[in-house]
Amino acid sequence: MSKQIQYTDEPIGEIKVVADFLPSPSELKLKSENTKITISLSAESVEYFKAAAAKHHMQYQKMIRQLLDEYVAHQKSTNK
């Protein structure tokens, strides 16, 4: 059983107001719609992404999806 907290009326100390750093709801990136596909990748590529994803505590499919999204965004920006 945990020890009961004893509150006192002592002063808290200097209080500092922190600026709101959270984005507004309109600035939040909404989850984009995904399309399921079937793709064949080399075993070497899949093992690389699985190892990298495990190191960063994420899913390897998500890592591949993010990589492709970044590639598409880059191509769109350079082809304008």
Rank of each mutant, 00 (worst) to 15 (best):
E10W: 05
Q6S: 02
L28A: 05
A54H: 08
S40G: 13
Q75D: 11
K31C: 01
V17S: 13
Q61H: 12
K62I: 00
T78R: 11
S32Y: 10
L41M: 15
K16T: 10
S32W: 08
P23C: 04
I37S: 11
L41G: 01
K55D: 02
I15L: 12
S40V: 14
S40H: 15
P23V: 02
M1G: 06
Y60F: 15
A19F: 05
N34Q: 14
K80H: 08
E70A: 09
S26A: 07
E33K: 15
A53F: 00
Q59C: 00
Q6I: 02
A53G: 04
S2M: 04
T38Q: 15
S2L: 05
D20L: 04
K16N: 05
K55I: 09
K36H: 10
Q75M: 14
E14C: 02
T8Q: 07
N34I: 08
V46A: 04
D20V: 08
I15N: 06
Q4C: 01
S24P: 01
I64T: 01
V17R: 14
S2K: 06
K31Y: 02
Y7F: 08
S2W: 02
E44S: 13
K50L: 07
E44G: 05
K16E: 07
M58E: 12
A43T: 10
P23G: 02
L30E: 07
S26V: 03
T38V: 14
P25Y: 03
E33L: 09
A19G: 09
K36W: 13
A54N: 12
S45Q: 13
L28T: 06
